[in-house]
Amino acid sequence: MHFEALPTKRLPAQFTANNEFKLLDLILSNDIIDAEDEGGKGSLVQKIKTAALNERSAPELLEYKEELVDQIKQSLRSQKQRINGPFTEFQFEEKLFTSFQQMEIDRISYLLRSYLRSRIVKIEKHHSKFVSDETYHQRLSPSEQKFAQSYTDLIKSHYRESFLQSLPDRVNSGEEDAMTARINLDEYVICRVLERIGQIELDDQTDEFAELNENDVVLIRYRPIQHLLVEGKVELL
């Protein structure tokens, strides 16, 4: 917790053990974002955290978690409204509680931003792939699709107008794609195994296997665990 944020001057002199209990109750009973856990498979916060980490570490772009993003945005909005609302009594507990909540909001917003940013970084890095390849195109949200399209157009016209248009016709095309990084599915990632999986095949040519047990943390090629990540049996770190 971040006590720098507290208005220490307002600390009442009679701040006793009783008050402390009251404060604790207040904090525990108002943890809205965590309380909205319906599926039972971890809270929203945990989900967006996993999503952000997975997206950051995976070499390819993963499926867009539209529902999760909408839920998080919704929760953040209602939480913000609550703490910006008028105070009934301007009491120390409420001020303190608002600080905690504001911090919580800031940190969850960070996770959401980090998630969306990692995606934009990947879209820019491999932009032409997302326009040409249907599988990847479908993983984007509608706004991301728009972004990918305009970005690809922009890059192409920039290369063309800055340089390529001055070249002879036979050599002035086809290079935009060569300038985009390829998606390397054989990159190594660090992943944590969430449930017992047993043996998985690492390489179909050499017949190598690895045993994955619950809570193992392994450094492994992305390709063999690609489907496990989609199924939610492993998470990336």
């Binding site: 911090m103 940190r107 960070y110 969306l116 934009i120």
Partner: peptide, 16 residues
């Protein structure tokens, strides 16, 4: 998306 992506570029917020 309605989320200001240009904030918190340095890492998670530490203080309010």
């Amino acid at each position: 998306v309605g989320v200001d992506l240009c904030k918190d570029l340095q890492g998670p917020p530490q203080v309010l």
